[in-house]
Design a binder for these strands. Structure first.
Lengths: 204, 204
DNA sequence: GTAATTTTTTACCGATTGGTACATAATGTC
DNA sequence: GACATTATGTACCAATCGGTAAAAAATTAC
């Protein structure tokens, strides 16, 4: 065990709180004072634990992607015996539950950050890593859909790359709609229509 | 004619420049100094002409809605003899041209602002007027679709409200995708898939 | 020309920004 | 207990934030 005074706060808890401040207010809209107030710690403690504002944001964004966004993907693959159409509906409903959860800021932190990226106030490192994240996400979806196609859950002619990009686009749109106030129920009323674009899987 | 020194800059031109700064960097990411630098004027001139930062943003947003976003709606109604499906494609292509125009900031200022809305740094007036704008937009689309339905361009059973919300959702998604770097061509490859969700209009 | 009016320029305001120096407090090692 | 190590609290930094006071410059009305 290393020597020294013990940290008086839980680092993982603090990270989740910081993530929520960024989620609510964005990178530019969040001040270091906002963060330390929400975390209940002083600035030197924050800087010692997380580097600086930019590094804390990057860490918080990754925390969000791993703990909030990534788990939803599971709905798309399980249970494997369910029709793809049903799994897609469940997947989209989970997305909607995330972006319109009453216990969290509205919308998706990732989508919000993408909209903010490219601004002069956003560090270049963050802008480029956000770009990579979207590409990775689309690639993962495309691979997953390709596997479904080979299993016969999509027609042979299905363009999995296009479908993946369509899904990412719709997910981003749902996030914006939730952010501006659309209810969970209103968004779920769109799911059938969204899924009906998927070739083959759309058939009842 | 009123007395006094003449304004040395064109107010409408300055408004368009200010709009582009907000479009690129958002409300929180834009400083008054950024604005005066882009407009080539001093701060007192800006405050005299546009009030303050918040009022200038509200004016710039309206300028955007009227001059950039609203004209696109025309693609959905003209020419009236074209099939709705074709007009919808043209409409979505115009949206894509707006959000991925090389001569403008990427994405849609309106969508970007919706994502920023609700943050503590955003004045409440702006957040609520953004909410109204989305509702107005959806209502306008729904009315327009209802007229098409009565013309026989949509099945009798078509739920025009749902279709309108679906379209607004997809438009927001396209904006986010453009912002994070997707090309005009890549986005247009999604149009057929998007339109194929529209009942009736989807049939060739 | 003179007065009234409006814009521009310069210089400034208090408050807040992200970030840190430094002393103190608490812990583990020996 | 002495010492090295780490965290905390206070107090501060230069820079920038949104916004303005006051004087000079330019214009029209008379």
């Amino acid at each position: 065990m290393s020597a020294g005074r013990k940290r008086a706060f839980d680092k993982e808890e603090a990270l989740d709180k910081a993530m929520r401040v960024f989620w609510e207010n964005g990178y530019s809209g969040t001040s270091v004072t906002d963060l330390t107030a929400a975390l209940g710690i002083n600035k030197p403690s924050m800087y010692a634990a997380f580097g600086n504002k930019e590094q804390l944001f990057a860490t918080a964004l990754e925390h969000y992607m791993v703990n909030y966004r990534a788990p939803i993907l599971q709905q798309l693959t399980e249970p494997p015996e369910a029709p793809l159409r049903e799994r897609m509906k469940a997947f989209l409903c989970s997305v909607i539950d995330l972006v319109s959860n009453p216990a969290s800021p509205k919308g998706c932190l990732f989508v919000k950050s993408c909209c903010e990226s490219g601004s002069v106030a956003i560090p270049d490192d963050i802008t480029s890593s956000l770009g990579n994240m979207v590409l990775d996400h689309e690639e993962m979806l495309a691979n997953l859909l390709e596997a479904e196609r080979q299993r016969g859950q999509l027609p042979e002619s299905a363009e999995v790359q296009i479908i993946a990009e369509y899904l990412v686009t719709v997910m981003a749109g749902l996030s914006v709609q939730a952010r501006r106030g659309k209810s969970n129920e209103a968004l779920k009323a769109l799911v059938d229509m969204i899924v009906s674009s998927i070739p083959g899987a759309a058939k009842d």
